[in-house]
């Protein structure tokens, strides 16, 4: 099976910090990107999403060179920690924008949007405004949008960090269910070892802008020989 996401000798300098990433992440699997805060987890995600472009090296997504592509031209969907929805637009429109940025929707699209909302447990919420929803509901709506987008790659930047533990668990289950249905490549940034164990098949550990370890999640969670990882797992 081809690699889902490849960062090929990617180098990037942001202010005084520099980053060097060289890795290949498996397609159709959930990979957790983890590490201490400030290590460069989000930067790696931004490189894949296209919010940052490398100074050197290539970014290949699903077999295509995406190095210089605009975020919208990359085959990815995104979920951030917050601000995933336009607060002045209702849920239906927010999800619909995932299909067509100019909201030109066919009858099928209409159906798909309603179904996606039902699938994430927000059936009948089509006309609700984001301001009237809880944090968990807003993240569910963001999931609904990734469903209708049907992109092979899903990038998530600490999507559950703002939610309480019970909610985090049910959201993780929702993510895994959806992943089983779509078999897409998922990249999730998290600083929570439990979440790595719960969600991911693979793990990438980043420290000071470098990838220290790239391994199956189980192996990663058992490693105590690298001090930085040991600190992270125990802390």
């Amino acid at each position: 099976m081809a690699d889902g996401i490849v960062l090929e000798k990617v180098e990037l300098r942001l202010g005084t910090r520099d980053f060097r990433f060289d890795c290949a992440l498996p397609a159709g699997a959930v990979t957790a990107v983890t590490g201490p805060s400030g290590s460069g987890k989000s930067t790696l995600l931004n490189l894949v999403a296209g919010f940052e472009t490398p100074d050197r090296g290539r970014v290949v997504i699903a077999g295509d060179d995406a190095t210089d592509k605009h975020p919208s031209e990359r085959p990815v969907s995104l979920i951030f920690q917050d601000n995933n929805l336009f607060t002045h637009l209702d849920l239906f429109t927010n999800v619909g924008l995932g299909i067509s940025p100019s909201l030109k929707l066919s009858a099928e699209d209409w159906k798909a949007i309603s179904e996606a909302l039902v699938r994430v447990g927000l059936g009948g919420f089509d006309k609700r405004m984001p301001g009237t929803l809880s944090g968990g509901e807003r993240q569910r709506a963001a999931f609904a949008r990734t469903l209708v987008r049907r992109k092979p790659v899903l990038l998530m930047d600490e999507p559950f960090a703002a939610l309480d533990p019970g909610l985090r668990l049910s959201m993780a289950n929702l993510l895994l269910d959806l992943h089983r249905e779509t078999r897409n490549t998922v990249l999730i940034v998290t600083h929570d070892p439990d979440e790595v164990g719960r969600l991911a098949e693979h793990a990438v550990f980043i420290d000071h802008g470098r990838i220290l370890l790239q391994a199956p999640a189980k192996e990663f969670l058992g490693r105590r020989d690298i001090p930085a990882i040991a600190d992270f797992l125990s802390g």
Partner: peptide, 10 residues
């Protein structure tokens, strides 16, 4: 809204 719009290609 900047990142969201960009990622959705709006």
């Amino acid at each position: 809204t900047g990142r969201l719009s960009a990622s959705l290609g709006i």
